[in-house]
Design a binder for these strands. Structure first.
Length: 776
DNA sequence: CAGTGAGCGAGCTTCCGCTTGACTT
């Protein structure tokens, strides 16, 4: 039995540390928090200065049992949870739950998992910092009070099952407001002039820095240039440099994996978790850009041996984010000499990204020479400008360049190339000059990763919660991640070449979106309600303000109960006032106008099952309803769109003497026939689907259903073998079971099937809270 | 997860932050 017990948060960390500490130490893990507020009323005694009651979380009972038995046998217990607010609280909860004796318990902290850091930590123990623990309690209790008082109001006033909270409600607000900005944006057109010149057989592009507001101005300018000659008026060379980005934090890893690998944030975290558990990378939930001395030395030797000493430069990065707690290192490879790892393709790609980013951060600046050429036009005071860039020394660019979220302007790639040699005064041959109509663009919709970036900038959420938050707002049906086709738009392109002016109208695609976050109508109604009644809590800077108070508590400058009291009084009063607001006022109908034939009012509102349009008043017996389509909003659906919606359900024809109707339901467009439902296929439209197509659809579905059933057993008709979306599976009552690899579904005997059922735990009892939203 | 409707209403839902498996029809 070991003399010393060390408790850390993560089992993978425990394994590594045990290797550093030797025989006298046993290192185990708590798997994060072990206690929390229970769900019910007894969690917080509001009248008794917010006194919390904690309970061991259900899934930690077993962990605590094991920890207790280890602690019993140890001489000294080292509480080594993370060196931040949450970590301090974990240590305190452990001490309480395990009933650890103060004299045999030590609190140790380290911010990097290196032998040196661990040994030093063991040599310098301290006690639990109760101010820091209290700051965590304040954070926890504030979040509970906000979340569990706001959510029930939403159930009563809008829809059951909804939720609100300090983090998620601001995330939703960002998306709602961005959508409205986009909706309100009026594309303003202007005209951009680009020219192609030729010097000794080489061509290069120049641009007029000023854009013309009207077509006439651009046309006049181009026509004037037909008579002009061009010459180099000025030539400037300036050395510039580029510096590498800091190594990854959780948020920057999610952003780059999204831009370069097209991963969702949940996918990034799940792949990173695998790399971490395999010992390939350091901890993946971090807000720190710091590298340990060991890591910097290892990076140095890897760079020097692969690229040469002139490619190396030591850099310490300071973390930009004010809310950072920096309990860990940046995300980096554990072994810099490995530029690649084994594992599946995604693990390899993510590892490579992490390796490159960390290595590049310790590499020399790239040195460039930027050339700017100003081109005079003989009959105009305006100048054209051409930019060129030459890399003199590639430095870190040899390995890695960070992408940006900015969408590139159309055909602007000519700006960064090599320019042919030229001299001041030299005449230039114009090959062609274009005047192209361009349109102003609204701010782009958020992607999962750009939303994380924004939240981090606002100090909202933590590395461990970015992915779950994104998943929660989608699960609550506040936000959908979607791709949408763009719409064609005409633009003008004028051109002069060979002494001729030409004016053409061309077509481009605009507004196409790929995997962007769109708000739902529910999000808009909920957001407006919260903004109206709880402007303080839903303010973008609410978190930053309370964080300041948590910091005061942590440094002993403020009592946590006073802090909560100061917030709760006003907040709870708003809650009580809001209880009095009527449902009608919260979720009010929007009057679109009068029906063109009947003259009845047409409304749009949020119904129990989603957004709808309605002809007639609520009291009317013969009122009609139709659901809004995906992408339509209550706040701006037009009469024309509304009338279109009432054309469904539509009679399509007859099959087997029974009527077929087409409509759009909760699960998309469908055909109804003989009280059965058949979903339309992609590309089929309920407004236009023909009788023949509908019949084919029904026949295909029947055929698929027939194939679905593989076999049943006489011994027990409740057990079936079926063909599902992912191949054959066993269905027993309400539970499903996987068929192990190497077994043929058709040939399974009753005994074998029973054995499979018994060997697998009941399905559907526990649900993952971390993973990506599962599409059914 | 269900399975195409639009207030009978039991009893339920819900927060944020730490962690990792198990498992999906």
């Amino acid at each position: 039995m070991s003399k010393n017990l060390v408790i850390v948060e993560s089992p993978a960390k425990a394994k590594t540390i045990e290797g550093y500490l030797g025989k006298d130490f046993k290192v185990v893990s708590s798997y994060g928090h072990v206690r929390d507020l229970p769900k019910g009323d007894k969690a917080i005694d509001i009248k008794n200065r917010f006194k919390p009651t904690y309970e061991v979380t259900a899934d930690k009972k077993e962990v605590i049992k094991n920890l207790k038995s280890f602690a019993k046998d140890a001489e000294t217990v080292y509480l080594a949870s993370d060196d931040d607010r949450e970590g301090e609280a974990i240590s305190w909860h452990l001490k309480e739950v395990l009933k650890l004796d103060e004299s045999h318990t030590k609190r140790i902290v380290f911010r990097e998992i290196t032998k040196n850091a661990i040994t030093k930590a063991i040599e310098n123990p301290r006690g639990i910092d109760y101010d820091l623990v209290n700051a965590q309690q304040a954070r926890r209790i504030l979040d509970r009070l906000v979340g569990f008082e706001l959510s029930p109001i939403l159930w009563k006033k809008i829809k059951t099952g909804l939720s609100a909270g300090r983090v998620q409600s601001v995330a939703v607000r960002l998306i709602v407001e961005r959508e409205r900005e986009i909706e309100a944006h009026k594309a303003k057109s202007s005209y951009r002039i680009t020219a192609l010149f030729e010097v000794e057989g080489k061509t290069f592009q120049a641009e007029l820095p000023k854009k013309f507001e009207t077509k006439q101005e651009a046309e006049d300018f181009l026509k004037n240039c037909l008579q002009a000659s061009f010459s180099v008026a000025n030539l400037e060379k300036k050395p510039t440099k580029k510096t590498p980005a800091a190594p990854f934090t959780t948020s920057t890893l999610q952003q780059e994996a999204s831009r370069k690998l097209y991963f969702s944030v949940a996918q990034t975290m799940s792949v990173a978790q695998k790399l971490y558990e395999a010992g390939k990378i350091t901890y993946m939930r971090t807000d720190s850009t710091n590298l340990s001395q060991d890591a910097m030395a290892a990076a140095k030797s890897a760079i020097e041996s692969s690229y040469g000493a002139n490619y190396h430069k030591s850099r310490q990065f300071t973390t930009k984010s004010e809310s950072a707690q920096e309990a860990h290192e940046a995300i980096r490879p554990t072994d810099f000499s490995q530029s690649q790892v084994s594992g599946d393709r995604n693990e390899q790609r993510l590892y490579e990204l992490i390796w490159k980013r960390a290595i590049a951060s310790q590499m020399a600046d790239a040195e460039l020479e930027r050339t700017t050429i100003t081109i005079a036009i003989s009959n105009s005071p305006l100048n054209l400008v051409a930019n060129g860039e030459v890399i003199k020394f590639d430095g870190f660019l040899k390995v890695y360049l960070e992408d940006t979220d900015d969408e590139p302007e159309e055909d602007e790639d000519g700006g960064k190339s090599l320019l042919p040699p030229m001299a001041i005064g030299q005449g230039l041959n114009l090959q062609e000059m274009k005047g192209r109509e361009t349109f102003s663009r609204p701010a782009p919709r958020y992607t999962e990763a750009s939303l994380v970036k924004k939240l981090e900038e606002l100090g909202i959420g933590r590395p461990s919660t970015y992915a779950p938050t994104i998943s929660t707002i989608q699960k609550r049906d506040y936000v959908v991640k979607e791709s949408r086709d763009g719409t064609p738009r005409n633009y003008v392109e004028m051109k002069i070449a060979n002494g001729q002016f030409k004016d053409t109208t061309k077509t481009e695609n605009t507004g196409a979106e790929k995997n962007k976050l769109f708000p739902t109508n529910t999000a808009m109604v909920v957001n407006d309600f919260l903004v109206e009644h709880f402007p303080n809590v839903i303010d973008f800077h609410f978190t930053a303000r309370v964080e300041k108070e948590f910091d005061d508590i942590a440094s002993g400058g403020q009592d946590w109960q006073d802090m909560i009291d100061g917030f709760y009084g006003k907040f709870h009063k708003s809650v009580e006032e809001t209880e009095q607001v009527s449902r009608q006022d919260v979720n009010s109908s929007r009057l679109i106008g009068q029906h063109p034939t009947s003259g009845k009012n047409v409304y749009a509102r949020l119904g129990r099952f989603g957004p709808l349009v309605q002809i007639g008043e609520n009291e009317d017996e013969d009122k009609q309803f139709a659901s809004l389509k995906k992408g339509q909003f209550i706040e701006n659906v037009s009469m024309e769109d509304a009338l279109e919606l009432f054309k469904l359900p539509r009679e399509v024809g007859y099959f087997e003497d029974k009527k077929m109707t087409a409509a759009i339901g909760r699960f998309g467009p469908y055909i109804r026939h003989d009280s059965a439902f058949y979903s339309l296929e992609k590309g089929q439209d309920p407004m236009s689907i023909s009788e023949e197509e509908a019949i084919t659809l029904i026949q295909n579905k029947r055929e698929a259903d027939a194939k679905k059933h593989i076999k049943t057993f006489e011994e027990n008709p409740e057990i079936q073998i079926l063909n599902g979306r992912w191949g054959p599976y066993i269905k027993f009552g309400k539970n499903n079971f996987k068929i192990p690899k190497g077994k043929e579904a058709e040939q399974l005997s009753y005994a074998e099937t029973l054995q499979i059922i018994e060997s697998q735990p009941d399905a559907g009892k526990k649900k993952g809270r971390f993973g990506a939203k599962k599409k059914s």
